[in-house]
Design a protein around this nucleic acid. Structure first.
Lengths: 349, 349
DNA sequence: CTGAAAGCGCTTACAG
DNA sequence: CTGAAAGCGCTTACAG
């Protein structure tokens, strides 16, 4: 409470020890509740510490204890997708959830913006990281490995030998769900548009799509676009796709930026949405909701998934490697039907 | 490059010194570019360090140097407003911009979620913070002051003697802009709905509104609602306002959650938007854009303002108190007209 | 129950 | 130009 009249720098453990006429060892024990101190001594020390306004120096504690008590959120997703224009995307939604969850456990969340080349992860003092949807050769993952830092992936890692823990975002089932929805709405020749990278969301969706195409007898049409390209790349890929496969009646564009570009391409080709071509996407964010027409998307329960990822990471940091499950499973994804794919009124549950 | 075959823990400066047959002092000088080392020695040391894969221990550096190289983003804004339902708000938009700006300067951004009571700021090792729109008696500011940490406000601080640097978000001019827009669209009796707190956005807007009311001969109608109340509070305040002042023909609801609630209240009272009552808000985020009808809002140039705030803070940390301006000024705000207030087609510039 | 001492990995006067 | 030594503020065996 009271401000120490002594000097200007904050009091150290030595100041407390002196004021309480004990050793620094005893102060440390008393304040950290290690059970080897006389209860009365402990109380006295606590009181003195409070009077002096003592707070342990976090830097010193961390050097000594060998931990940063901080984790980072990192991603190799290109800026155009992860941030860009309105910036309010997948990444920041995950960031908010992760910060809350981390702080609840006494960890700080360091927000590493999706940097282009980024030696970013080297200059930040952290114990580990959450990597959002790592690519097969992910820059963020590479940096973490080189630093020897543990990480948990949000979304199944696709790199060869990567057996790091992860939270499953259900890449395949999400695609299945969207394709089922399209079929239900009358689509007979849906095409798939995915990022050129090898993130689980693209890889698993492609596999699911090919399976569905075989099952239903669709001619499979899969287009890819560079993630860095954002809306424009989606536009171009979709325009090319429609030119080559004019009987396409639905586009499943898993990156929201692509989906918005696809909507433009569909319109520019003289087709109507959803009557001639439906468009659906995955992440239910600003882009999907403000698109004209609003895009059917998927509720991924990102909050829950992110909290699970943080839990997984912290368990690993605690060294519970044995007890820690190798993966958590986010809640069931759910389609949020909107005008971009609704030819019939949505079924009332 | 090469992994040291020695042990498993990362090499320290002592390892480098040993391998290069010099003292730790010299290694430190060589690596930090302090100009007292023979160029050839320096090169040799650098090479050895690289071979060993040496990276300075950030914890140790920071303890020694007495700085955390991290800043926090903090806010006392209630969760319902700052995060809540879709979480994609003002706060996260600022977070993204701040993280990028901070990292560019070698600082990490710690994301402190708008916690309810929050001793949050005590457990985080930072050199300073950006506080978003501090209230007159702001919890985050109080914690920072008690820790003796410098901070910069995003939005003019309203506390009595608070002369901390800040970035002006133009609370008054924003209100003027919105009111002028409403007048232009034909409103003759606009009401103001603000948060009950004393953040600059509420305080300055109220003053601007009263000034405008006097100038144009409106009967001033100002309602307040608790920020924690979110949409529902906005609904109730607006419903009461309309009951008491039935000839209100526009509502300027500066908190986006309030504005969305206001839209419902207007409709439930049997009035149409914008024909009977227009509704406008300040922050142009997800809520404003996805509202039905979409809400007229203001482009605050948050990116630029946030970058300025970070610059201001870092200048203060560098001790450039003298050279540091006491305030920066965000770019001119600009109205983004939408259906919620457009009775006439927008003027073509 | 309490304390003297070592050490976490750096940096920086200070002396040579 | 180079190094021995002190010290940043803690915690933790270890000894009493």
């Amino acid at each position: 409470m009271a401000t120490s009249g002594t000097g200007s720098r904050p009091p150290t453990i030595a100041d407390v020890a002196r004021a309480a006429s004990v050793s620094r060892t005893t102060v440390s024990h008393a304040l950290n509740g290690i059970g080897k101190v006389d209860p009365r001594t402990r109380e006295r020390i606590k009181q003195v510490a409070a009077e002096l306004g003592y707070r342990p120096n976090l830097r010193a504690q961390r050097l000594r204890r060998g931990e940063a008590k901080a984790i980072a959120l990192a991603s190799s997703m290109p800026f155009a997708v992860a941030g860009g224009a309105s910036r309010l995307g997948f990444y920041m939604e995950v960031a908010a959830a992760a910060a809350e969850s981390a702080l609840l456990h006494g960890y700080a969340l360091v927000l590493v913006p999706p940097v282009r080349s980024g030696s970013a992860l080297y200059s930040v003092d952290i114990d580990g990281a959450i990597v959002v949807e790592p690519d097969r050769d992910d820059a963020a993952v590479a940096q973490l490995r080189e630093r020897g830092l543990p990480y948990v992936a949000l979304g199944r890692p696709t790199a060869e030998g990567d057996d790091s823990p992860y939270v499953d975002l259900h890449g395949g089932p999400v695609a299945d769900l969207l394709l089922a929805h399209l079929r239900e709405q009358g689509a007979r020749r849906p095409a798939l548009l995915v990022g050129a990278g090898a993130r689980h969301s693209a890889v698993d969706a492609r596999a699911a799509y090919l399976r569905a195409a075989a099952a239903h007898g669709w001619p499979p049409v899969v287009a890819t676009a560079p993630e860095e390209g954002g809306e424009q790349a989606g536009y171009e890929a979709c325009a090319a796709l429609l030119a080559e496969h004019p009987d396409t009646d639905a586009v499943c564009a898993l990156v929201d930026a692509f989906a918005v570009g696809a909507v433009r391409a569909v319109r520019d080709s003289g087709r109507r949405i959803p009557d001639d071509v439906m468009v659906v996407t995955r992440y239910d964010g600003l882009r999907a909701r403000t698109c004209e027409p609003p895009l059917t998307a998927v509720d991924l329960h990102l909050d829950q998934a992110t909290a699970d990822a943080v839990d997984l990471l912290l368990a690993r940091l605690r060294g519970e490697t044995a007890a820690t499950p190798a993966a958590a499973t986010a809640p069931e994804p759910r389609v949020v039907p909107r005008a971009s794919s609704l030819r019939r009124p949505p079924p009332r549950p």
